[in-house]
Structures are given as C-alpha cells and as structure tokens.
Design a binder for these strands. Sequence first.
DNA 1: TCTACTTAGTTAGCGTACTAAGTATATAGG
DNA 2: CCTATATACTTAGTACGCTAACTAAGTAGA
Lengths: 166, 166
Amino acid sequence: MITPSLPPSPIEVPEVKLFRALLMQVGLVRRVMTPYFRRFGISGAQWAVLRALARAHRDGLEGLKGSEIGDRLLIRPPSVTGVLDRLEREKLVQRLPSQADRRMKLVSLTTQGRELVEQLEAGHAGHIQQVFAGLSAQEQMELRTLIDKLNQHLTQLADQVEKSTS
Amino acid sequence: MITPSLPPSPIEVPEVKLFRALLMQVGLVRRVMTPYFRRFGISGAQWAVLRALARAHRDGLEGLKGSEIGDRLLIRPPSVTGVLDRLEREKLVQRLPSQADRRMKLVSLTTQGRELVEQLEAGHAGHIQQVFAGLSAQEQMELRTLIDKLNQHLTQLADQVEKSTS
DNA sequence: TCTACTTAGTTAGCGTACTAAGTATATAGG
DNA sequence: CCTATATACTTAGTACGCTAACTAAGTAGA
C-alpha cells in the first residue's frame, strides 16, 4: 500500500538550521540594501562594478577587462555583460576596445560615473555601519573571522563543484 | 577647474570589509547550492517552497496560503506567484481554491511533490554539512548566534525601510 | 604553416527578485 | 445598506543570476 503521507520529519541537524538562518540573512540584507541603492538610481550589482572600476582608477589603471570584473564579483561572463550594458546606457561606464588584445574591451568610469561614485562614497560607510549596528565591534570582528574562514572553504567547494559539473 | 580624477579612497571602515565578505559568501553559497538542486530538477527557491509545504503537511494542515509562504521565505507576492506557477507546471504542488475565503488558494504538495521531498530529504543534511565543513561545531554555533542576532537587527531595519518608502 | 585549443565577450533563453498597478473578495464604518 | 479600506493574488515590466552555444582573436604544437 502506498502511503499518501510524508514520513516523519528527519532529525534537523544544526547545520540545516544554520543554513536557514543564513538564507534569512540574505533576504534581509537585500530588503535593506536594494532601496538604498535605488535612491542613487542604481542597483547593488551596479554599485559593485562601479566600485571595482573606481578602485582600478585609483590604482592608475586604464580600466578593467570584463573577466576581471566577473572574477572579483563572483559572477559569470553573461552577467557582467548585462550589468555593463545598463551602466553604459546610463553613461556611467565606457567600454574601450583594447589595441593590445583585440578580443577584450577595457571598461572604465565616465566622468559622470566618477561623480556618482564620489557622491555615493560620501555616505556609504555610514549606511553599512547601520546594517551591522546590531552587533558590537567585538562581535563584528568574530563574524568577520568566521565568514572569512567559511568563504575559504566554500571557494574550494565551489571549485570542486565546477570541475565535477564540466 | 574640474578634476577628472577621483579623490583619494575614503578610509575603509571594518564594517565595509565585513559587508564585502558577506556578499562574497552569498555568491559562493549560490555557486555551491544551485548545481546541487539542479540535480533534482528544481531550484533553491522551489526547494524552499516545497519544504515549507512539507512542514505544513506534517503539521496536519491542508495547505498554506501564498502570503504565508512569502512571509516565511521573505519574498513578495509576485515572486510567490512565479515560483508556484513553475512548481504547478511540474505537478509538484497544487493550488486549491478555499471555500472559507474565496480570495485565497490553499497550496499543497501533490503526491509527486511529496515523493520529491522525501527523495531530497534523504541526502539534504549531508550536503548542508559539507557546506559548513570548514568550521568546527563550536564555530558553527558561534556563527549561528551572531547571524541570529544580526537577523534580529536587520528585521527591525527592514521594517523601518519599508515604512519610510511607503 | 595550419590545425587545435584557449580566452574574451556576446546572445538566447530561463528562473527569481523587485515595484507598480489591476482584479476579486472580505470587512468595517457611516 | 453601502461605501471605503484592507487583503489575496495576479499581471506587466525590469534587473540580475545562471547554462549553453556562438563569434572573434590569440596561442601553441604537429
């Protein structure tokens, strides 16, 4: 006889609860940050790209290639193309063909893009501090240590997944 | 004279570094989990819904209404509609009109959906344990405590954002 | 040299998140 | 009773992530 009901709930290991807490965190951070970036007419992903380009600019580089942006942001090439398309449409970045390697395009901030970065940077630290205001400086340090350690492990795990898939 | 260059990089407060570590974590978890769910023909969001429905089923409920699902998963009504559309297409869930309140539809697992939940639950804990294998049991507990505390704060902050926007 | 492989970027198509706005039903206040 | 508000869900349109597949260009090996 086929039972139409589910068997009793499996024992919930602590890792699963931790994982759900982590997913909750992701959702909450999205809800807090998305409207914040919206005020500047951009998205979180767009800000991440603008910030990477600003850093490159300050390091004296002419620009970044798309693949470098993708590596830093942990997103795949098609996602980079999409975000750059929209940033270029808003005239915040430009894609200049490279003479050295004609396959790639060097992406850099426009004057308008640099102005927006400046404007955003003025209040950015303050807003991020609000996000973590629920934790003491000590707790923030502990969290940082744990996340870094977890990220190291996840990087390894992600590489394994990548290989086994391809 | 207008400077075409950016002013020097603002001082990077620890919170900003922590925030970037957190974003990194989000990207890495996505890269590890998405291929895992893919093996079962579903997505992470779909699993979250199936799991919520399984829990409701075990609690003896006929089903959940869409808004309850959205509340648990921290997603808005249109996202719930979309995920349910695809789950219904795959015959994993069903939307039954409620007689008590004709506005809502009670969402529940189909037999096929229950079978998939069972199948997935068999190996789920093991996979999640892999995700956190980079941390000791002690560290996992600490991380859990910190995330819970942060989530409490973020919930409050998200509510404020919601109110100020509307 | 010429083929094979690699790298850079794009396009196509899908799933999931959002806001804004619309429909239908329920409930409350005058 | 009947209008106003609130609730439940959907539709429309946008952004961002992915895989698969494609073009173009550089690189290496027979």
